[in-house]
Computed example of a mutant assay.
Amino acid sequence: MIISEPKLRTFTQQVFLSIGCSKAHAELAADVLLKSDLRGIDSHGLARLAGYVRLWDKKRINSTPDIKIVHETPTTATVDGDAGLGLVVAPFAMQIAIEKAEKYGSGWVSVRNSNHFGIAGYHGLMAVEKDMIGFAMTNASPLVAPTFSNEKMLGTNPMCYAFPAGKHAPVIVDMATSAAANGKLEIAQRSGKQVPEGWIQDKQGAYTTDPHALKSGGSLLPLGSDRDHGSHKGFGLSATVDILSAVLSGANYGPWVPPFVAFMDPAPNPPGLGIGHFLGAMRVDGFRPVADFKADMDNWIERFKSASRVDEAQPVIIPGEPELEAEAIRIKEGIPLVDAVVKDLNELAVRFGLEGL
Protein backbone atom coordinates (compact mmCIF):
# COMPACT_ATOMS: atom_id res chain seq x y z
CA MET A 1 0.00 0.00 0.00
CA ILE A 2 1.24 3.50 -0.88
CA ILE A 3 0.13 6.30 1.45
CA SER A 4 0.83 10.02 1.17
CA GLU A 5 3.42 11.52 3.47
CA PRO A 6 1.02 14.14 4.94
CA LYS A 7 -1.49 11.45 5.91
CA LEU A 8 1.17 9.31 7.55
CA ARG A 9 2.63 12.33 9.34
CA THR A 10 -0.74 13.25 10.84
CA PHE A 11 -1.39 9.64 11.86
CA THR A 12 2.03 9.26 13.48
CA GLN A 13 1.68 12.50 15.42
CA GLN A 14 -1.71 11.35 16.69
CA VAL A 15 -0.25 8.07 17.93
CA PHE A 16 2.50 9.85 19.86
CA LEU A 17 -0.05 12.27 21.31
CA SER A 18 -2.15 9.26 22.34
CA ILE A 19 0.66 7.89 24.51
CA GLY A 20 1.04 11.23 26.27
CA CYS A 21 3.72 13.07 24.29
CA SER A 22 3.54 16.85 24.11
CA LYS A 23 2.58 18.38 20.77
CA ALA A 24 6.18 19.47 20.14
CA HIS A 25 7.57 16.02 20.97
CA ALA A 26 4.91 14.25 18.90
CA GLU A 27 5.71 16.41 15.88
CA LEU A 28 9.47 15.89 16.27
CA ALA A 29 9.19 12.12 16.79
CA ALA A 30 6.95 11.82 13.74
CA ASP A 31 9.39 13.90 11.69
CA VAL A 32 12.31 11.60 12.56
CA LEU A 33 10.33 8.45 11.69
CA LEU A 34 8.94 9.89 8.45
CA LYS A 35 12.40 11.05 7.38
CA SER A 36 13.48 7.41 7.48
CA ASP A 37 10.60 6.23 5.31
CA LEU A 38 11.01 9.13 2.90
CA ARG A 39 14.69 8.32 2.47
CA GLY A 40 13.88 4.68 1.71
CA ILE A 41 15.14 3.30 5.02
CA ASP A 42 11.90 1.43 5.66
CA SER A 43 13.32 -0.59 8.55
CA HIS A 44 13.59 2.48 10.80
CA GLY A 45 10.42 4.36 9.96
CA LEU A 46 6.78 3.59 10.63
CA ALA A 47 7.66 -0.10 10.84
CA ARG A 48 8.98 0.82 14.30
CA LEU A 49 5.98 2.83 15.52
CA ALA A 50 4.10 -0.06 17.14
CA GLY A 51 7.35 -1.08 18.84
CA TYR A 52 7.63 2.28 20.58
CA VAL A 53 4.05 1.96 21.79
CA ARG A 54 4.72 -1.53 23.14
CA LEU A 55 7.74 -0.25 25.05
CA TRP A 56 5.59 2.57 26.44
CA ASP A 57 3.07 -0.06 27.56
CA LYS A 58 5.89 -1.78 29.43
CA LYS A 59 6.83 1.57 31.06
CA ARG A 60 10.22 1.41 29.40
CA ILE A 61 9.58 4.65 27.48
CA ASN A 62 8.70 7.86 29.29
CA SER A 63 6.45 9.99 27.08
CA THR A 64 6.98 13.11 29.23
CA PRO A 65 10.74 13.05 29.92
CA ASP A 66 12.76 15.68 31.76
CA ILE A 67 15.71 15.75 29.37
CA LYS A 68 18.66 17.56 30.91
CA ILE A 69 22.41 18.13 30.91
CA VAL A 70 24.08 16.33 33.81
CA HIS A 71 27.72 17.14 33.03
CA GLU A 72 29.18 19.93 30.91
CA THR A 73 32.25 21.81 29.70
CA PRO A 74 32.28 24.60 27.08
CA THR A 75 32.57 22.09 24.22
CA THR A 76 31.15 18.87 25.67
CA ALA A 77 28.11 17.65 27.59
CA THR A 78 26.42 14.53 28.86
CA VAL A 79 22.64 14.42 28.57
CA ASP A 80 20.25 12.22 30.55
CA GLY A 81 17.19 11.42 28.43
CA ASP A 82 14.99 10.32 31.36
CA ALA A 83 13.96 7.21 29.37
CA GLY A 84 12.38 9.40 26.70
CA LEU A 85 11.93 8.59 23.05
CA GLY A 86 15.33 8.58 21.36
CA LEU A 87 13.50 10.33 18.52
CA VAL A 88 13.24 13.34 20.86
CA VAL A 89 16.30 12.93 23.08
CA ALA A 90 18.87 12.71 20.25
CA PRO A 91 17.74 15.92 18.47
CA PHE A 92 17.86 17.69 21.86
CA ALA A 93 21.46 16.53 22.27
CA MET A 94 22.43 17.42 18.71
CA GLN A 95 21.04 20.91 19.18
CA ILE A 96 23.33 21.32 22.20
CA ALA A 97 26.29 20.13 20.12
CA ILE A 98 25.41 22.65 17.40
CA GLU A 99 25.09 25.52 19.89
CA LYS A 100 28.46 24.67 21.39
CA ALA A 101 29.99 24.48 17.93
CA GLU A 102 28.57 27.90 17.07
CA LYS A 103 30.44 29.35 20.08
CA TYR A 104 33.61 27.28 20.22
CA GLY A 105 34.04 25.60 16.82
CA SER A 106 32.89 22.13 17.82
CA GLY A 107 30.45 20.49 20.20
CA TRP A 108 30.25 16.90 21.45
CA VAL A 109 27.41 15.36 23.43
CA SER A 110 27.14 11.88 24.89
CA VAL A 111 23.69 10.63 25.91
CA ARG A 112 22.47 8.09 28.45
CA ASN A 113 19.03 6.85 29.49
CA SER A 114 17.53 7.07 26.00
CA ASN A 115 15.84 4.73 23.52
CA HIS A 116 16.06 3.91 19.80
CA PHE A 117 16.70 7.20 17.95
CA GLY A 118 15.60 6.38 14.39
CA ILE A 119 18.10 6.90 11.58
CA ALA A 120 21.46 8.42 12.48
CA GLY A 121 21.31 10.49 9.30
CA TYR A 122 18.48 12.64 10.66
CA HIS A 123 20.70 13.93 13.44
CA GLY A 124 23.76 14.36 11.25
CA LEU A 125 21.73 16.46 8.81
CA MET A 126 20.83 18.88 11.61
CA ALA A 127 24.49 19.96 11.65
CA VAL A 128 24.75 20.12 7.86
CA GLU A 129 21.89 22.64 7.81
CA LYS A 130 24.15 24.95 9.83
CA ASP A 131 27.17 24.52 7.52
CA MET A 132 28.72 22.09 9.97
CA ILE A 133 29.99 18.54 9.74
CA GLY A 134 27.70 16.27 11.73
CA PHE A 135 28.41 13.05 13.62
CA ALA A 136 25.77 10.73 15.08
CA MET A 137 25.99 7.24 16.48
CA THR A 138 24.13 5.00 18.90
CA ASN A 139 24.51 1.63 20.49
CA ALA A 140 21.66 -0.84 20.27
CA SER A 141 20.25 -4.16 21.48
CA PRO A 142 22.87 -6.97 21.50
CA LEU A 143 22.40 -8.97 18.30
CA VAL A 144 25.93 -9.05 16.87
CA ALA A 145 28.70 -11.46 17.84
CA PRO A 146 32.30 -10.20 17.95
CA THR A 147 34.80 -11.82 15.58
CA PHE A 148 35.53 -15.42 16.69
CA SER A 149 32.45 -15.50 18.97
CA ASN A 150 28.89 -16.83 18.75
CA GLU A 151 27.58 -14.72 21.66
CA LYS A 152 25.46 -11.63 21.02
CA MET A 153 27.49 -8.80 22.56
CA LEU A 154 26.95 -5.69 20.42
CA GLY A 155 24.15 -3.96 18.59
CA THR A 156 24.09 -3.04 14.93
CA ASN A 157 25.55 0.21 16.30
CA PRO A 158 25.10 2.65 13.38
CA MET A 159 27.30 5.65 12.74
CA CYS A 160 26.74 8.69 10.53
CA TYR A 161 29.10 11.30 9.12
CA ALA A 162 27.41 14.19 7.32
CA PHE A 163 29.24 16.74 5.12
CA PRO A 164 27.70 19.85 3.52
CA ALA A 165 28.32 20.56 -0.14
CA GLY A 166 27.58 23.50 -2.45
CA LYS A 167 25.47 22.91 -5.55
CA HIS A 168 25.29 19.19 -4.78
CA ALA A 169 23.46 17.42 -1.99
CA PRO A 170 25.32 16.69 1.25
CA VAL A 171 27.42 13.55 1.51
CA ILE A 172 25.76 11.39 4.17
CA VAL A 173 27.57 8.25 5.32
CA ASP A 174 24.94 6.46 7.45
CA MET A 175 25.56 2.79 8.08
CA ALA A 176 25.30 -0.06 10.52
CA THR A 177 28.58 -1.56 11.73
CA SER A 178 27.10 -5.05 11.33
CA ALA A 179 26.95 -6.94 8.04
CA ALA A 180 23.28 -5.92 7.85
CA ALA A 181 20.90 -3.83 9.93
CA ASN A 182 18.40 -5.78 12.03
CA GLY A 183 15.60 -3.91 10.31
CA LYS A 184 16.56 -5.63 7.05
CA LEU A 185 16.05 -8.97 8.77
CA GLU A 186 12.63 -7.82 9.95
CA ILE A 187 11.72 -6.86 6.38
CA ALA A 188 12.85 -10.29 5.16
CA GLN A 189 10.82 -11.96 7.90
CA ARG A 190 7.68 -10.05 6.95
CA SER A 191 8.25 -10.78 3.27
CA GLY A 192 9.01 -14.48 3.80
CA LYS A 193 12.40 -14.17 2.10
CA GLN A 194 15.84 -15.57 2.88
CA VAL A 195 18.78 -13.24 3.51
CA PRO A 196 22.20 -13.30 1.83
CA GLU A 197 24.93 -15.56 3.22
CA GLY A 198 27.26 -13.65 5.49
CA TRP A 199 24.61 -11.68 7.38
CA ILE A 200 23.82 -14.20 10.13
CA GLN A 201 25.37 -17.20 11.85
CA ASP A 202 23.51 -19.90 13.74
CA LYS A 203 24.24 -20.73 17.38
CA GLN A 204 27.10 -23.01 16.29
CA GLY A 205 28.69 -20.18 14.29
CA ALA A 206 27.81 -21.46 10.80
CA TYR A 207 26.42 -19.19 8.09
CA THR A 208 22.65 -19.32 7.62
CA THR A 209 20.23 -17.51 5.31
CA ASP A 210 17.26 -17.94 7.66
CA PRO A 211 16.11 -14.44 8.80
CA HIS A 212 14.56 -16.05 11.91
CA ALA A 213 17.88 -17.55 13.08
CA LEU A 214 18.32 -14.97 15.84
CA LYS A 215 15.31 -16.45 17.63
CA SER A 216 17.03 -19.85 17.87
CA GLY A 217 20.33 -18.66 19.30
CA GLY A 218 21.95 -17.23 16.17
CA SER A 219 23.59 -13.84 15.86
CA LEU A 220 24.25 -11.13 13.33
CA LEU A 221 27.81 -10.82 12.05
CA PRO A 222 30.00 -7.70 12.12
CA LEU A 223 30.63 -5.74 8.95
CA GLY A 224 32.95 -7.99 6.92
CA SER A 225 31.17 -11.19 8.01
CA ASP A 226 34.29 -13.19 8.92
CA ARG A 227 37.93 -12.63 9.78
CA ASP A 228 39.14 -13.38 6.26
CA HIS A 229 36.89 -10.62 4.92
CA GLY A 230 37.62 -8.06 7.62
CA SER A 231 35.02 -8.69 10.33
CA HIS A 232 37.58 -7.48 12.90
CA LYS A 233 37.22 -4.04 11.30
CA GLY A 234 33.45 -4.10 11.68
CA PHE A 235 33.91 -5.29 15.26
CA GLY A 236 36.28 -2.38 15.90
CA LEU A 237 33.87 0.17 14.46
CA SER A 238 31.01 -1.26 16.51
CA ALA A 239 33.14 -1.20 19.66
CA THR A 240 33.97 2.46 19.01
CA VAL A 241 30.26 3.32 18.77
CA ASP A 242 29.49 1.38 21.95
CA ILE A 243 32.25 3.08 23.94
CA LEU A 244 31.52 6.63 22.77
CA SER A 245 27.76 6.21 23.12
CA ALA A 246 27.59 4.34 26.41
CA VAL A 247 30.80 3.84 28.34
CA LEU A 248 31.43 7.58 27.96
CA SER A 249 27.90 8.65 28.94
CA GLY A 250 26.97 6.11 31.61
CA ALA A 251 24.45 4.24 29.44
CA ASN A 252 24.30 0.45 29.17
CA TYR A 253 26.89 -1.11 26.89
CA GLY A 254 27.61 -4.44 25.24
CA PRO A 255 25.22 -7.24 26.23
CA TRP A 256 23.40 -5.03 28.78
CA VAL A 257 21.80 -2.68 26.23
CA PRO A 258 18.01 -3.03 26.65
CA PRO A 259 16.21 -4.76 23.75
CA PHE A 260 13.93 -2.74 21.49
CA VAL A 261 11.29 -5.46 21.61
CA ALA A 262 8.86 -5.28 24.53
CA PHE A 263 8.52 -9.06 24.98
CA MET A 264 12.17 -9.31 26.09
CA ASP A 265 13.17 -7.94 29.48
CA PRO A 266 16.39 -5.94 29.88
CA ALA A 267 19.42 -7.84 31.17
CA PRO A 268 19.66 -8.06 34.97
CA ASN A 269 22.02 -5.76 36.89
CA PRO A 270 22.83 -3.39 34.02
CA PRO A 271 25.91 -1.20 34.54
CA GLY A 272 24.27 1.99 33.24
CA LEU A 273 21.09 3.72 32.18
CA GLY A 274 19.16 2.96 28.97
CA ILE A 275 20.57 3.22 25.47
CA GLY A 276 23.40 5.64 24.68
CA HIS A 277 24.08 8.01 21.78
CA PHE A 278 26.98 10.21 20.72
CA LEU A 279 26.38 13.39 18.71
CA GLY A 280 28.86 15.91 17.38
CA ALA A 281 29.09 19.03 15.24
CA MET A 282 32.15 20.85 13.80
CA ARG A 283 32.06 24.24 12.13
CA VAL A 284 33.58 24.07 8.66
CA ASP A 285 34.78 27.66 8.99
CA GLY A 286 36.85 26.55 11.95
CA PHE A 287 39.16 25.05 9.32
CA ARG A 288 38.67 27.09 6.16
CA PRO A 289 36.07 29.37 4.52
CA VAL A 290 32.79 27.54 4.02
CA ALA A 291 32.51 28.55 0.35
CA ASP A 292 35.94 27.07 -0.40
CA PHE A 293 35.12 23.82 1.38
CA LYS A 294 31.80 23.49 -0.43
CA ALA A 295 33.44 24.16 -3.80
CA ASP A 296 35.93 21.38 -3.15
CA MET A 297 33.16 19.08 -1.92
CA ASP A 298 31.33 19.68 -5.20
CA ASN A 299 34.52 18.87 -7.09
CA TRP A 300 35.04 15.76 -4.95
CA ILE A 301 31.51 14.56 -5.73
CA GLU A 302 31.83 15.25 -9.46
CA ARG A 303 35.19 13.50 -9.70
CA PHE A 304 33.96 10.39 -7.93
CA LYS A 305 30.80 10.33 -10.05
CA SER A 306 33.00 10.36 -13.16
CA ALA A 307 35.20 7.47 -12.01
CA SER A 308 35.57 4.68 -14.58
CA ARG A 309 32.89 2.03 -14.24
CA VAL A 310 33.01 -1.73 -14.05
CA ASP A 311 29.57 -1.72 -15.69
CA GLU A 312 28.62 1.29 -17.80
CA ALA A 313 25.01 0.84 -16.77
CA GLN A 314 25.90 1.20 -13.07
CA PRO A 315 27.27 4.62 -12.07
CA VAL A 316 29.32 5.22 -8.95
CA ILE A 317 26.98 6.07 -6.07
CA ILE A 318 27.87 8.87 -3.67
CA PRO A 319 26.98 8.17 -0.02
CA GLY A 320 23.49 9.54 0.60
CA GLU A 321 22.54 9.65 -3.07
CA PRO A 322 20.07 6.71 -3.07
CA GLU A 323 18.28 8.15 -0.03
CA LEU A 324 17.99 11.56 -1.70
CA GLU A 325 16.52 9.99 -4.84
CA ALA A 326 14.04 7.97 -2.76
CA GLU A 327 12.97 11.10 -0.88
CA ALA A 328 12.25 13.01 -4.09
CA ILE A 329 10.05 10.17 -5.35
CA ARG A 330 8.24 9.45 -2.11
CA ILE A 331 7.40 13.06 -1.32
CA LYS A 332 5.67 13.18 -4.69
CA GLU A 333 4.19 9.68 -4.98
CA GLY A 334 3.75 8.57 -1.36
CA ILE A 335 5.39 6.05 0.95
CA PRO A 336 5.03 2.29 0.30
CA LEU A 337 4.25 0.18 3.37
CA VAL A 338 4.20 -3.62 3.49
CA ASP A 339 0.98 -5.31 4.61
CA ALA A 340 2.37 -6.32 8.00
CA VAL A 341 3.20 -2.69 8.85
CA VAL A 342 -0.20 -1.46 7.67
CA LYS A 343 -1.81 -4.10 9.89
CA ASP A 344 0.21 -2.92 12.91
CA LEU A 345 -0.70 0.70 12.24
CA ASN A 346 -4.38 -0.03 11.80
CA GLU A 347 -4.36 -1.90 15.11
CA LEU A 348 -2.94 1.23 16.71
CA ALA A 349 -5.71 3.25 15.06
CA VAL A 350 -8.36 0.99 16.60
CA ARG A 351 -6.71 1.11 20.00
CA PHE A 352 -6.46 4.90 20.13
CA GLY A 353 -9.66 5.71 18.25
CA LEU A 354 -7.92 7.16 15.21
CA GLU A 355 -8.81 7.05 11.53
CA GLY A 356 -7.17 3.99 10.01
CA LEU A 357 -5.02 3.81 6.90
Rank of each mutant, 00 (worst) to 15 (best):
Lys184Thr: 12
Val195Phe: 01
Ala180Cys: 09
Ala181Asp: 01
Ala181Val: 09
Ala213Asp: 11
Gln194Lys: 15
Ile187Leu: 15
Gly183Lys: 04
Gln201Phe: 00
Gly198Leu: 07
Gly205Leu: 09
Lys184Val: 12
Gln189Ser: 03
Glu197Leu: 11
Arg190His: 07
Lys193Pro: 07
Ser191Gln: 15
Leu185Trp: 05
Gln204Leu: 05
Thr208Asn: 08
Tyr207Gln: 10
Thr208Val: 06
Glu186Trp: 09
His212Ile: 00
Arg190Thr: 04
Gln201Glu: 07
Asp202Arg: 00
Gly198Gln: 07
Gln204Ala: 15
Arg190Met: 05
Gly183Asn: 06
Gln204Trp: 06
Ala179Val: 04
Ala180Ile: 12
Ile200Glu: 05
Val195Met: 00
Ser191Pro: 06
Ala213Val: 06
Gly198Glu: 08
Gly205His: 13
Lys203Pro: 13
Lys193Cys: 05
Gln201Thr: 04
Asn182Ala: 05
Asp202Val: 04
Ile187Gln: 13
Ala179His: 09
Ala188Met: 06
Ala181His: 11
Ala181Lys: 12
Gly198Met: 10
Ala188Glu: 10
Asn182His: 13
Lys193Gly: 08
Ala181Ser: 12
Ala206Tyr: 05
Ile200Lys: 06
Pro196Phe: 06
Gly205Phe: 01
Tyr207Cys: 08
Ala188His: 03
Lys193Arg: 14
Ala179Arg: 12
Asp210Ser: 05
Gln204Phe: 01
Thr209Pro: 02
Ala181Ile: 09
Tyr207Asn: 13
Leu185Lys: 03
Gly183Pro: 11
Ser178Pro: 05
Ala213Ser: 13
Ala181Gly: 14
Lys203Val: 11
Tyr207Arg: 04
His212Tyr: 15
Gly205Val: 01
Gly183His: 07
Asp210Pro: 04
Ala179Glu: 13
Gly198Val: 07
Lys184His: 09
Pro196Val: 12
Glu197Ala: 08
Ala213Lys: 05
Pro211Gln: 09
Gln189Trp: 00
Gln189Ala: 01
Thr208Ala: 03
Ala181Thr: 13
